[in-house]
Amino acid sequence: MPKLKKPTILWLQSITCNGNTHSFFSHPDFVALMQKFEIIHHPILNTKYTLENVANENLTCDVLVLEGAFRQTGMKKANKEIYDIAQKYAKKAKHIITAGSCATFGGIFRQYDTKSIGGFCFDGELPNETYKLFKKKLISIPGCPAHPRWIGSVLSMILTHRQIPLDELHRPLEIYAYNAHVGCSRSEYYEWKIDVSRYGHKEGCLFYDHGCQAPFTHANCNKILWNEISSKTRVGTPCFGCTEPTFPKKNLWHTTTLMGIPASMPIGIPKRAYLTIAGIAKSFTIKRLNEPIIKYKK
């Protein structure tokens, strides 16, 4: 039987911190997964072609992975505008993956100059000119960084020709239909509206006062966990909403409130419904939820 040719993959970086590269490198099956591809170029792996080859030649590319925010001019690598290199391979690729919030929406680095820096196909939540060219093969994997499994699973789904239903921002629904609150170990405190008194306690919710954006952030972090073991909210850090086109908002450690009422509601929950339930839940003092859950002897 003839050996099937492996699909080619090209991982290209623009204005980035390399966070997605290092995040994906922490995928337990990183090596096995990458071995299913012929790697044209990768930021940290020793590859057959150099970035200069990528910039100056016309190499094959089935799957293009983009990392980092883009500007059409003023960001050169190997004497070529990185945007033009990305365009060249985007045209050839069967699939374009924007890995991380910078490549998808512009992310943190867009904040430096929102007029000229954005994602490859979206500037914030708005589709740009590039979007029109590539929307048919675009898969968005926002996150700061993207979770290793998000990238790994999408690559595997491409390899195995699985259907990948997407939302309007081209995020795979199997990952982003959840919100980051789902599976949070503090959810009981959320239900009974008990805020964490100060940082550094396993008890208490971070939604009311401490800026947690998990209930309105599309991501499955607390379902699949980070590094196979934990998550921001599990260790008492608020979710900063890093998978959303609005990332990074301002005042990240404080809940934005309107007359003391959270300004952002959990996805799809009308304010009236939320306030009715919240008001009732808040009216009860549940002893167990107001004391430490573990008591150590002195």
């Binding site: 009422i261 008001g279 009732i280 003092t285």
Partner: peptide
């Protein structure tokens, strides 16, 4: 009927009135 439970119908609407007022920049 602790705290606000029995007046929730009224309180909820007042809350919505306030938060809408702040949201549109008037309050």
């Amino acid at each position: 009927c602790q705290r606000m439970v029995c007046v929730a119908g009224f309180i909820t609407e007042i809350m919505i009135f306030f938060s809408d007022g702040v949201e549109c920049g008037e309050l």
